[in-house]
Design a protein around this nucleic acid. Structure first.
Lengths: 195, 195
DNA sequence: ACCGTTATATGACGCTCATCAGATAAACCG
DNA sequence: CGGTTTATCTGATGAGCGTCATATAACGGT
């Protein structure tokens, strides 16, 4: 009911941000309501504006946060794979049923793809920054000179995750993941072979 | 204010459906409001339920309608291209800035991708049917035996359109379209070469 | 000519949302 | 210790939503 200490307040803010970051991936931006986020954080809705200027400000930060977490996972995957196969390892981990079924901890790129067009400038900026970083990582890890391949790869795997979630037939959903993984694995192996 | 004739009523229903079909692609499903659709159709909100059982029923029909219109465009493109190059022609037409900038008349696959997970059964069914038909068309038009390539292709081009719309940097948006088109054109040409 | 049907319109219901105003009380700071 | 700051709560505002109840009046069939 009353005020918290600096650290407690910072922890509250962090909790709200983390919950929002998961919520926008699981329920979308439009489906993320401030009252629900605050309730999940163990607070009442009114205190929201003590921490953030607006919903847009929260969503911008939450979006950036989601990309950061996702980036950490990818870097860890890259670090745990053999030289030149890092990108293939990332793709292999990306196109799984686990990733499909857990959007709230997954990559924000496919989760927010279609909603972004209609978001205010600050939110789109955060998303674009995340996409730029993703592409830069792909280019850095590309075997051979496959720079122009990165956008097609990102579009391909994020599109596959989004589609596999959208479709209501489990067999079709699995096929989308499986065939897309097989395709890109072959493409990346060929690039690797070529040096 | 009063009743219309059978034909006029059917025309009203059709108008509502067509407007909804455009609206879900441009504004999303959550962003499509019945009052707005009815206003655009020149009616008041209350008469909506004389034509449709619920918003979900409207969205289901609108989704199916959007896939049908999009299919007609693709079939026309295929018919106007040389044998074996139909798929490449479809992709070339798909990955354009015009398609990116006109979602309301474009393919519903990228427009609704991320919202579908959270839709009721009937709506997801309509979307899945549309995706199945799309994949079947791609397989039918595939040069050589590129059947397992279709899901990766659909994910790749719909993901590219969605990403190119999401991003706020025009240069990046254009690059996503250009590089993805170049990549798939090369892939399809190789398959064609192989017979 | 009539009457049941129905495509519209008006208006209301209950809900949820983003945002803000005011009060409270604990934390911070001198 | 005293005064100020501020994290939180309660509650309100106004808007928009999907849905439905009711009324109207023209249509369609008899």
């Amino acid at each position: 009911m009353a005020r918290h200490s600096r650290e407690e307040a910072a922890a509250s803010r962090d909790r709200v941000l983390r919950i929002a970051s998961r919520s926008i991936r699981a329920r979308g931006i439009g489906g993320t309501a401030i009252p629900a986020v605050m309730r999940d954080a163990g607070l009442t809705h009114g205190s929201f504006y003590a921490h953030f200027d607006s919903k847009d400000a929260l969503v911008s930060e939450a979006c950036a946060h989601a990309f950061l977490r996702s980036a950490a996972v990818q870097e860890a995957t890259a670090a745990g794979s053999r030289k030149g196969e890092a990108l293939a390892a990332i793709v292999r981990r990306y196109l799984t049923e686990a990733h499909r079924d857990e959007p709230e901890t997954g990559c924000p790129a496919p989760a927010l793809m279609t909603e972004m067009v209609r978001q205010p400038a600050a939110v789109r900026r955060a998303y674009t920054k995340g996409i730029e970083d993703l592409l830069a990582r792909f280019e850095r890890l590309s075997p051979g000179r496959a720079r122009e391949l990165s956008p097609a790869l990102l579009a391909g795997i994020s599109g596959a995750i989004a589609l596999s979630r959208a479709v209501d037939d489990p067999a079709l959903s699995a096929r989308i993941l499986r065939d897309t993984l097989a395709f890109w694995t072959r493409v990346l192996a060929r690039k690797e072979g070529k040096r």
